[in-house]
């Protein structure tokens, strides 16, 4: 799963070397925390959150396929919001 997210992110950012995906799990399921170069944050979120939404949709589908719940958190350098959505 981490492999999937890294693959996609490295394919869309300007600084693939700065992509970091941390995998952990909590009571909600598998959590993937994504960190990219500050100048790439906009790309990963997309206009109106379009890219972030697409990434979550893909990760959810792949998760269901593999029989688990997977959440994606994108660090945007701002204080954490509720990350569960």
């Amino acid at each position: 799963m981490r492999d999937l997210v890294e693959y996609v992110l490295r394919g869309i950012v300007a600084r693939p070397d700065q992509v970091q995906v941390e995998e952990s799990s909590d009571d909600r399921g598998t959590v993937l925390r994504v960190r990219v170069a500050p100048e790439d944050v906009g790309k990963v979120i997309g206009r109106g959150g379009r890219m972030a939404r697409a990434l979550r949709t893909l990760v959810r589908a792949a998760g269901v396929r593999g029989g688990r719940v997977v959440l994606l958190e994108i660090e945007d350098g701002r204080p954490r919001r509720d990350a569960s959505r």
Partner: peptide
């Protein structure tokens, strides 16, 4: 899902 795949 198609929409998402297309965006990515």
């Amino acid at each position: 899902g198609i929409e998402a795949v297309e965006t990515v």
